[in-house]
């Protein structure tokens, strides 16, 4: 693994190795001393073109727990503000000797560009690009699902046979795209649930099922339901007019107490955060014992540690004889 750009690039073996590594690393995180010396002397740059305090903190924590030096770089980017170009930013990071660049960008494909342009040598980790991919989110979701739904000895295991529904704004969601790719690779059966306006043209070619009716999907018996954030602005004409009103949305696609009760007793509820309580998820569901939303955050650190470990700890190919 040289970069982590898309969950779709991961083979089953790659994905299971990341989850297993995360599990071993998670075990060290219960200790009083959580810091490991593994990436001492390595520099990880968090290059965030889009505000996301929670994702940045998660990566920052992961890198620091592995003793890497962390530089946070909040950038503006070429498109919106006509700030410094991605290329110049990349050349700057190269000159600073970055070993890994964790990039969050509003433009789909920006991490791909960074990795393929030759502007810098660092390993590139996609921390969310536009409406494309957010692979570490999918990995932490898979990790969380495996912990809860796959036997007491999950090491080496995938998610074969699990039924997962992903509900909400699939059209604009990099979380949905990443999860469809990764959960499919790991053997789970995924159903996307959304109003037709919030599904992309072409979704029929994805390795999943698609439904417009949450209640029907819930009735099929799920192991997990993942609620996606829906922005209220999407209902307005300026926001695209994707649904008539927040109320109608939550009535048809929100996870409320009644729908929560329709889940089998072992099923878990996920949400990538930040939540819109009362829109896609009710407080009852978010705070219920089924909800593993807070745990997702903790698992995010372990998964990101695993990714940084696997990308940075070994020798670069040319150094390894």
């Amino acid at each position: 693994m040289e970069h982590l750009l898309s969950a779709g690039d991961l083979s089953r073996t790659d994905a299971v190795r990341i989850l297993d590594t995360a599990a071993e690393l998670a075990a060290t995180q219960g200790r009083e001393i959580k810091k490991l010396p593994t990436l001492r002397g390595r520099t990880v740059v968090n290059l965030f073109f889009e505000d996301s305090t929670r994702t940045r903190i998660s990566f920052e924590t992961a890198a620091k727990r592995l003793s890497a030096d962390v530089i946070n770089f909040a950038a503006k980017g070429s498109s919106v503000s006509k700030g410094e170009s991605l290329k110049d930013t990349a050349l700057t990071l190269q000159a600073m000797g970055a070993d890994a660049v964790v990039i969050r960008h509003h433009a789909s494909g920006a991490p791909h560009l960074l990795a393929s342009s030759g502007w810098l040598q660092a390993a590139v980790v996609n921390a969310g690009d536009g409406t494309h991919q957010h692979p570490t989110q999918a990995l932490l979701d898979a990790y969380t699902l495996r912990r809860h739904l796959v036997g007491p000895q999950p090491l080496g295991q995938d998610l074969a046979g699990l039924r997962v529904a992903i509900v909400g704004d699939v059209l604009h969601s990099r979380v949905a795209r990443s999860n469809v790719d990764l959960l499919h690779t790991l053997g789970a059966r995924v159903t996307l649930v959304a109003p037709p306006t919030l599904l992309p043209v072409g979704v029929e070619t994805w390795p999943c099922e698609v439904s417009y009716h949450l209640d029907e999907v819930l009735a099929q018996g799920l192991d997990a339901v993942m609620m996606l954030r829906v922005q209220r602005e999407r209902m307005s004409s300026a926001g695209g007019g994707f649904f008539p009103s927040p109320l109608e949305y939550s009535r048809r696609y929100g996870l409320d107490a009644r729908r929560l009760a329709a889940l089998p007793s072992h099923a878990v509820v996920l949400h990538p955060g930040p939540m819109n309580r009362g829109l896609e998820i009710s407080a009852t569901a978010a705070d219920s014992s089924r909800s593993v939303i807070v745990e997702q955050v903790a698992n995010g650190v372990a998964v990101r540690m695993a990714v940084l470990y696997l990308l940075l700890a070994g020798g670069r190919r040319e150094d390894v004889s």
Binding site: D20, A27, L310, A313, G314, G315, D319, V320
Partner: peptide, 19 residues
């Protein structure tokens, strides 16, 4: 001891064992 080795960068990445 994987995470504490001083030769990690000299070899392809090693799997982490359990403590």
């Amino acid at each position: 001891i994987t995470m504490h080795r001083d030769d990690l960068h000299r070899a392809p990445v090693r799997p982490i064992g359990a403590t």
